[in-house]
Design a protein around this nucleic acid. Sequence first.
DNA 1: TAGTGGTCTAGACCACCCT
DNA 2: GGGTGGTCTAGACCACTAC
Lengths: 242, 242
Amino acid sequence: MREGITVRSPPPTPVNSWQTIQAEVMRRIAERIWPAGELIPGEVELAEEFGCARATVNRALRELAEAGILDRKRRAGTRVSALPVRKPTLEVPIIRLEVERRGARHGHRVVERTSAPAPAAVASRLGLTAGNRLLHLRTLHLAGNRPFAYEDRWLNPIAVPEFSSVDLATISANEWLVRNVPLTTGDFLLMAVNADETVAGLLETDPGAALFVVERTTWYARRPITFVRLVYAPGYTMEMHV
Amino acid sequence: MREGITVRSPPPTPVNSWQTIQAEVMRRIAERIWPAGELIPGEVELAEEFGCARATVNRALRELAEAGILDRKRRAGTRVSALPVRKPTLEVPIIRLEVERRGARHGHRVVERTSAPAPAAVASRLGLTAGNRLLHLRTLHLAGNRPFAYEDRWLNPIAVPEFSSVDLATISANEWLVRNVPLTTGDFLLMAVNADETVAGLLETDPGAALFVVERTTWYARRPITFVRLVYAPGYTMEMHV
DNA sequence: TAGTGGTCTAGACCACCCT
DNA sequence: GGGTGGTCTAGACCACTAC
């Protein structure tokens, strides 16, 4: 391309990679060169400044928009978000990996495995009518030989018929579902509760102890799969990162 | 382009958009046409199949790789992740918005605002040496006139000198920081604790009540900004979504 | 060393939506 | 109406790494 010598406009400073551009844009935001709410230059203009193609600028800015740092609208241009909030994400949503990362061996013991009509609270969470027969599974997760978490799960057998033949001695319901019903969506509710007699017994702690609870509802293609309530033993902390 | 009539190979079914391709790839994963761990066709091959440019396939697959659904390596090709875990994200990390989304009016009352040497626990979290003088801020957040959360914050005055002149009657430290120190990174620790006498009094609950706690450490460009411990009033639930 | 994904380019068309 | 971002293309070069 560009035969001959010293053609005009070799990118003035060839800092042309979407990462470089993204970093520079973030620097300008962080240092308030582009304050919150401000309209920043358009893609073509930035492409000229950085000496690159518009697609490269687009890639850099698109990711920042997805991350909530920029607001982009056609015709209106690109603005720095007024409230540039980073969304923290959970690292390890699989119990076995949580246990192993703490340096212990994961085990689990099935306390109950029955079929029962869904209680109203569970049914409403899953968008089913109360009284539907669901699989009810209660499991104690162990770290070494200490109780780690108590799991109370309701599972929609119509959505996951294969589950009935799963050997829960070899794999936990949690992990089987992650491996076998991929691409689910779900809601998480996190809360703190005082241990009641039953849970205190299972987790080998005292009634009244503050316990960390996760309630998860999972769908696959709009169809309800499972509702699970996880009650962690005292001292559990959940890590997130931005 | 392509002058003349009925040129060969107009994309057999012109399903060519990265969303379409991504959806189709997800369908094949979900229906185990491409099982977990499997090597899927290369970008060029898929581009031919979908009748589009390789860049379009790349965009579709890249996003799935970032989401943890695919594993991509040069030369080795693209595989379906063995453990296709979706990472749930927190929706609203700003207290005022949390309160308002619950339909209440947010207010806050500063309990203490002093300068004090950092306790060892706080200093180590921030990567500072114990005894450094930090701003210490204790605040009660209100929903209507009910206590909502108790905030115990330590702030590095060197990193945020402007903070000393902030009028905390008009804006909370939380929100001022979000607005004025953008693009921070941070760790979150979530846990459950039993209320002690002091906190129970502030939150108008009983000692021993299970309380939801968030501990956040925030950096900007590797420099420690703030450590904050938020203790929510009983009944609080935090929502996440995948 | 050859084949894969990662990236960039120059150009193009389109959808949206403020003016 | 026109300017912005959103997307696609065809081609190219490169980096990595399994073979």
